[in-house]
Amino acid sequence: MGILNLTPDSFSDGGKFNTEKSALQQAEKMLKDGASMIDIGPQSTRPNAEFLSSLEEIKRIGNVISLVKKEFPDALISLDTFYAETVKFGFNEGIDLVNDISGGQFDVNMLDAVAETNLPYILMHVNPSYQTMHEKTGFTDITLTVNQYFSRKTDELLKKGIKDIILDPGFGFGKTVEDQMKMIGEVEFFGFGSFPLLIGISRKSFIYKPLGKSALDINEETQKLHLKVLRQGAKILRVHDVAEAKKTVDEFLRLN
């Protein structure tokens, strides 16, 4: 899954792809590099990012979804939003998946909107509000906490008729470096093996800050972690550097 940020303020590529032309060029590059999905994000969710309404998200997306679908009809388009109205807009534009960092907690209408569209849904573990999503709360056992959340939320989703569910443990959201390294080592235990697992660690600070490096200078370390999570059953890697991740996936498939 290649990341296409339409934002001026994302932590590592803000402003690079926030025109229709540059977004389409980046989508083309990622697909040529081996992506099978493009995750389009109109809003940055890094700490202290600008907060957008659904209307502002829709305005920022503009024609990007429909243009990518027209140009690359075989590509799967995921929409990264926590708003019901943005989901409805994206559905009409042709999206294939909903990637919701909030687990339906930031908009009371979100899960009903997903159920109405019958789209696959990516459920991420996160703190219960936009204001607290990056607060580090000090988990006794992060894997147990995430699995309790997944158990509760997947039950809610299934009751609403949302059955095509992908799980995301939520790297980079309200977790310490120690929490996240523990999560990397325990990926095989997430989600009880009932749902496919998405891992999004690309350019995350828990990797580069302890090394004293920048977000753009940790490719080697990231690919080693990607290989580790693939060996534990991860099915989707959400990444900025598609070509490098594709090499890792190919190596994993060759060895397995």
Rank of each mutant, 00 (worst) to 15 (best):
71 E>D: 08
5 N>V: 03
148 Q>K: 14
23 A>E: 04
110 M>P: 00
175 K>D: 08
117 T>G: 07
98 V>A: 07
40 I>M: 11
81 T>W: 03
187 V>Q: 09
52 L>I: 04
256 N>S: 14
178 E>H: 01
147 N>V: 10
220 E>N: 08
181 M>K: 13
39 D>V: 13
52 L>C: 08
197 L>S: 06
62 G>H: 09
129 S>N: 04
111 L>K: 13
135 E>T: 14
72 F>Q: 07
220 E>M: 10
62 G>T: 00
182 K>R: 11
3 I>V: 15
179 D>H: 03
227 L>R: 10
39 D>P: 02
57 E>P: 06
69 K>R: 07
146 V>F: 04
115 A>W: 00
254 R>N: 10
115 A>E: 07
170 G>R: 00
133 M>T: 08
68 V>H: 08
181 M>W: 15
161 G>T: 01
81 T>S: 11
202 S>C: 04
107 D>G: 06
174 G>A: 12
10 S>P: 09
219 N>Y: 05
192 F>C: 07
117 T>N: 09
246 K>P: 02
231 R>S: 13
36 S>A: 10
229 V>W: 10
90 G>V: 03
226 H>K: 02
214 S>D: 11
167 L>M: 03
145 T>Y: 01
5 N>W: 01
26 Q>T: 09
59 K>C: 01
89 F>I: 05
197 L>Y: 07
52 L>H: 05
48 N>E: 12
111 L>T: 11
200 G>K: 13
104 G>V: 03
